[in-house]
């Protein structure tokens, strides 16, 4: 039983370190990518994974808090893609240009959001 507790605590530390590392790497991608859409990709995906991992690490370290931690994880998992989609849609409809290395624009080809142009 003591062995199990030690494994739980060290797994919590591991998830905490991995999560904070991803929370650092996402804004680094935001700073270095050339375009709004690439920045959106880096910022949203990496930040979601880092937040879920760090919160799960906290939940492993404090087993009594696991209910509210699961609520927080579900909240981040539901709301982060919604806000990302809203930002990307508004950026495309307000005609923010793509970067020079982009090869395809499916919305332009299939005439989605045609009324905005």
């Amino acid at each position: 039983m003591i062995i199990l507790n030690v494994i739980r605590v060290y797994a919590g530390y591991f998830f905490l370190i991995i999560g904070s590392l991803f929370l650092f790497l996402g804004p680094l991608g935001i700073l270095r990518f050339p375009d709004v859409y690439n920045r959106l990709q880096a910022g949203t995906k990496s930040t979601t994974l880092g937040a879920i991992s760090a919160l799960f690490g906290i939940g492993l370290l404090e087993p009594g808090w696991l209910g509210k931690i699961v609520i927080l994880i579900l909240f981040i998992l539901l709301t982060n893609p919604v806000s990302s989609h809203a930002i990307g849609r508004s950026a495309y409809r307000s005609k923010v240009p793509l970067c020079g290395k982009s090869v395809v624009d499916k919305c332009e080809e299939e005439h989605i959001y045609k009324e905005a142009k």
């Binding site: 804004p27 935001i30 920045r39 910022g43 949203t44 950026a91």
Partner: peptide, 30 residues
């Protein structure tokens, strides 16, 4: 990470860049 996103929010060329930076900053702050 919050400081890096804050730099992008300060120098972002378009308003959409600043909104992306704010979104990431708030998730990290949570």
């Amino acid at each position: 990470g919050v400081i890096l996103a804050l730099i992008r929010g300060l120098i972002g060329p378009t308003p959409a860049d600043r909104v992306v930076a704010i979104d990431s900053m708030t998730t990290v702050a949570t």
